[in-house]
């Protein structure tokens, strides 16, 4: 793990609002475990997609592609597999072969052996896998601590601003920031310095 590349080489850019959490973008060849709403996951893909990368989403039968386009994901470089059925691992592996960025609904229970096999495939192709759910051997865990909507009143207005309080745990260090998803180009403020994480998913 210590041999990993620390520079920006081999990583995919993220939107400016995620800069405090992922200063060098999403690392290629790794898997991230997410416990966040779908919109945060979409926004994570958007940075690389708008720079010309292909993306895939596996296991989202109700993926709002229009919202994805709103975050900056190019729809003509997006592939959806809404229902991988019981073939979760073969499908994700086959997609990881050809798509650099992959967002997948977690398969539930993950056997460590399968995860290791997929991990080596990702390293070979320098692809990044974002799993909504727990994942063994993940590069980092992104978790939502709170969410808030603004703009909607008692019978007036409409939802206009969505802020999420995110915490990224990477190699025992936790970074947190409040990200405004309705203004993805604004660099979010980090709340507190990096501190040792207090346990969580393996």
């Amino acid at each position: 793990m210590l041999q990993g590349r620390r520079n920006r080489e081999g990583s995919y850019p993220v939107l400016p609002c995620f800069a405090p959490l992922l200063p060098s973008g999403l690392r290629g060849g790794t898997a991230y475990s997410l416990d966040v709403p779908l919109s945060v996951a979409m926004a994570l893909l958007a940075g690389a997609s708008s720079e010309g990368q292909w993306c895939g989403a596996v296991g989202f039968p109700d993926f709002g592609a229009e919202a994805a386009a709103g975050f900056g994901i190019a729809l003509d470089r997006l592939v959806l597999v809404p229902d991988p059925g019981e073939h979760w691992f073969p499908v994700v592996a086959a997609l990881a072969d050809v798509l650099p960025l992959l967002l997948a609904q977690g398969p539930g229970r993950v056997a460590p052996g399968e995860a290791a096999k997929l991990g080596s495939r990702l390293r070979e192709r320098a692809g990044t896998l974002l799993v909504l759910g727990p994942w063994p051997q993940s590069e980092a865990v992104l978790r939502m601590r709170g969410t808030s909507w603004e703009g909607l009143g008692e019978g007036y207005g409409h939802l206009s601003r969505h802020r999420v309080d995110l915490e990224l745990t990477q190699r025992g260090l936790a970074r947190s920031a409040v990200v405004d998803l309705s203004a993805p180009d604004v660099v979010a403020l980090r709340t507190g310095a990096a501190r040792p994480a207090a346990g969580g998913w393996p």
Binding site: A65, L80, V81, P84, H87, V91, A94, L95, V98, L99
Partner: peptide, 24 residues
């Protein structure tokens, strides 16, 4: 070509309507 080939292989595995691309 590699991307297209990979997706078509997946399509023949899962069925034609299982690998989709969105269009506005």
């Amino acid at each position: 070509e590699r991307l297209d080939h990979g997706l078509r292989r997946l399509q023949s595995m899962l069925g034609h309507g299982s690998v989709l691309h969105p269009v506005a």
